[in-house]
């Protein structure tokens, strides 16, 4: 049981790690939010499931209730977090923000050659 919870938590942490790197490294608004959405939803689902499994390892009525509460939180996040990401991206799209393309990077490099070292 502990091994299952360990695997779940660690795979959740991998998602968190990837999401955090994505928020910092990705080039524009849409792609960053894409990473943030993964981080919230999948990372939280896996880590919280890991915690729930760990709680149930000592089987009693109380621990079952705790696990059910944790899963309820997961369900709530699972509904709301993608909706929030969707709403923010939709707002950006309506406001007229253009998605990033490879061409943007090329033109940015041509206009400001000093920037290319950072990329």
């Amino acid at each position: 049981m502990n091994i299952v919870s360990l695997i779940l938590t660690i795979s959740g942490l991998i998602f968190f790690f990837g999401g955090a790197i994505g928020i910092i490294r990705l080039p524009d608004f849409y792609t960053r939010l894409h990473a943030a959405g993964k981080l919230d939803t999948a990372g939280l689902l896996l880590t919280m499931s890991g915690l729930a499994v760990y709680t149930v390892s000592e089987l009693s009525l109380g621990s079952l209730f705790t696990a059910a509460k944790i899963m309820f939180i997961v369900m709530l996040i699972f509904i709301t977090s993608p909706t929030a990401t969707h709403a923010i991206i939709d707002a950006g799209f309506i406001a007229g923000l253009k998605p990033w393309t490879k061409q943007d990077q090329i033109t940015a490099r041509e206009s400001e050659p000093t920037d290319s070292q950072e990329e």
Partner: peptide, 18 residues
């Protein structure tokens, strides 16, 4: 006017009572 958004409206309708 912002376009009708089914996802946001439905989610909010489900979540608000909770």
């Amino acid at each position: 006017w912002t376009p009708y958004d089914l996802i946001i409206k439905t989610t909010c309708r489900i979540i608000i009572p909770f």
